[in-house]
């Protein structure tokens, strides 16, 4: 409601005694200086700096990469952080490795006899089930191939957690008599087994002498060539790592030359066919010199020969004298 009587704001126009205070000066009204917008000197400079290519590159690439590297370095300089992160990574790795998809449950061995299978199992010494990440197939293969009876092994992890070991066994080709014992060797001269540990399916040729395992091929060829000797053949002896002797029953020998041993043996066999030379009192049949066949007789035969020769001489002298 407006009052009906007008209020008087201004002081009455009555004269006053005393010094009249001047009315308070109105506060100076700041005249708004209208200026056109312009960038301040600093914004101008900053913008120019930002448009500088080198500065831009440093700020965009250099500083973040430095911060990243520095921060990472700072974080990893603490031993605790490092081990924590490594442990975490190991844990994750272990979890993944332990998943059933990667587990090997069954070890299957193919192409080995029962005894060898057991041996391979022992050599592998796997504690199944095991994660396929923990299996070093190459090392396992070398372990299997280190077994004397194994020629080649092939390991692979198949689906369903199956570790398949495919083994090629060494086939014994010869019986080798050494000072240490009697062993079986295969075609390449590798040790297969001790003779006592194994039942042989078929009789094998027997060899002796040092270095016989390096020339298994020759021994086998000689054995094939000496087939007509039949039961009389006992074996072959490597002499001086150089040439072969064929050892027959009754400790008789055929001494073969260094080269052309098989042909020499064939010649000896032909001689046997023609003259039955081995049926006589011959201790050694020496074919080492291809030009000349030499025969060592048994002592008894030599005695007999001498006796006969002496008799013959007597008869001749008696005949001429008498």
């Amino acid at each position: 409601m407006r009052p009906l009587i007008a209020r008087r704001d201004t002081p009455p126009l009555t004269a006053r005694r005393g010094p009249v205070a001047p009315p308070p000066a109105p506060p100076p009204v700041a005249e708004p200086v209208h200026r056109d917008p312009a960038p301040s000197i600093w914004s101008y400079r900053v913008q120019r700096l930002w448009l500088t290519p080198l500065f831009r590159r440093v700020l965009r690439v250099g500083v973040p990469s430095f911060a990243l590297v520095f921060g990472t370095g700072l974080y990893f300089s603490d031993e605790g952080h490092r081990t924590a992160i490594l442990d975490g990574l190991q844990e994750i790795r272990r979890e993944i490795e332990a998943r059933p998809e990667f587990r090997v449950n069954v070890l299957g061995i193919d192409g080995a006899s029962d005894r060898l299978t057991a041996e391979i199992r022992g050599a592998l010494a796997l504690d199944l089930p095991v994660s396929s990440f923990d299996l070093d197939l190459e090392a396992l293969r070398q372990r299997v191939e280190a077994l004397p009876a194994v020629a080649r092994a092939d390991l692979r992890i198949q689906s369903g957690g199956y570790l398949a070991v495919r083994v090629t066994e060494r086939v014994p080709a010869l019986i080798w008599q050494t000072r240490e014992g009697i062993v079986l060797i295969d075609r390449e001269g590798h040790f297969v087994d001790a003779l006592g540990d194994r039942q042989l399916e078929a009789p094998l040729p027997m060899v002796a002498g040092e270095g016989a395992d390096r020339v298994v091929d020759e021994a086998l060829a000689l054995h094939a060539a000496a087939a007509p000797l039949g039961d009389r053949l006992r074996g072959f002896v490597r002499m001086g790592e150089r040439r072969w002797d064929v050892v027959l029953t009754d400790d008789r020998r055929i001494l073969l030359p260094e080269r052309g041993a098989v042909q020499a043996l064939d010649r000896a066999l032909a001689l046997q066919d023609a003259t039955d030379i081995l049926g006589r009192d011959v201790l050694r049949l020496d074919l080492r010199n291809p030009d000349r066949l030499t025969v060592q007789l048994t002592p008894a035969a030599i005695e007999e020969l001498r006796r006969l020769r002496a008799l013959e001489r007597d008869t001749l002298t008696g005949g001429t004298s008498g």
Partner: peptide
């Protein structure tokens, strides 16, 4: 100021 505005 005007030059700065234009140049910027």
């Amino acid at each position: 100021r005007a030059i700065r505005t234009a140049v910027q």
